[in-house]
Design a protein around this nucleic acid. Structure first.
Lengths: 144, 144
DNA sequence: AATTTATTATTGATATATCAATAATAAATT
DNA sequence: AATTTATTATTGATATATCAATAATAAATT
């Protein structure tokens, strides 16, 4: 036997936690016919927070491939939630910004998202939340 | 403004940590031409630990879709790492087991994997590891 | 200023994921 | 025992992810 049980592996539990929480939220998204995925929501939220932002920056922040960002932005642009704004004197990048529709969309749904976040941390003390975050950041540092 | 920064969201950091660690290990897998993906490794490890196991159980344990398991097992079967063993008096399920080749494969590479796990938790006390695991399990419970 | 190098976004090829429908059949109910 | 229901694995359709190659062009170097 090569020893151990995969359920005891922290990295496995991290991935599992991520999957469970994504499924939870996606189910809710679908239930109310939100029309987007969790990962699309994350992009919208990043844009809302840091617009104007380039696609490269979006890829970095969300840890996704630039090619994947290109295609996801196509979808969200078609849904009129964001747009690629040309930059004067820079024809290599775009400024990605929310449309007013997109801003409204985020505003209308942020409360529901916050409920999910809250539910995920039910029974956590402030100290535990801080600690958890710091431990996660430490792992990220270790693997970078 | 809808407030807050997505970097402060624990669920976001959990997903980020998962992605970073997977990329780290996958890069190493590719470097030594291991010929499988992280998620394929996880299946092999689960099988090693709990064989004989059904595809349904594999899907549950790995939090993946049964259809995805079917296809991944096809790949791993083609690589001669595992096989679908027919069950007497039960023609609806298979017993999934490692081939001797597959068992050897796991044995040969478990040390490298353990190194990655160790690296991910560099600087963690035993108490911190326990705590982190428990906090993750708590989130999973909250979202189930 | 002209040339070289690096960066950004896109596209095609390919791999992987999920959902819905289906076939086979085991388990439960009548 | 016959019928109904539930479960398991598979397949097709579709969505999404990544890698490699490419075009456009900004930035750095000569």
């Amino acid at each position: 036997m090569s020893g151990g049980n995969i359920e005891d592996v922290i990295l496995f539990q991290i991935d599992k936690t991520s999957k469970i929480s994504k499924k939870y939220s996606q189910k809710e998204f679908d239930r109310i016919n939100l029309g987007i995925t969790i990962d699309q929501w994350v992009l919208l939220k990043i844009i809302e927070e840091t617009a104007p932002i380039s696609q490269k920056e979006l890829a970095d922040k969300s840890l996704r491939d630039p090619a994947s960002i290109t295609r996801t932005l196509d979808i969200l642009e078609k849904k009129q939630l964001l747009l690629r704004e040309p930059i004067l004197n820079n024809r290599r990048q775009y400024n990605i910004i929310l449309t007013s529709n997109g801003a409204k969309f985020v505003k209308n749904n942020i409360a529901m998202i916050k409920e999910h976040r809250k539910k995920s941390l039910e029974g956590f003390s402030k100290k535990e939340k801080e600690l958890l975050k710091n431990l996660l950041l430490k792992i990220q540092k270790n693997m970078s």
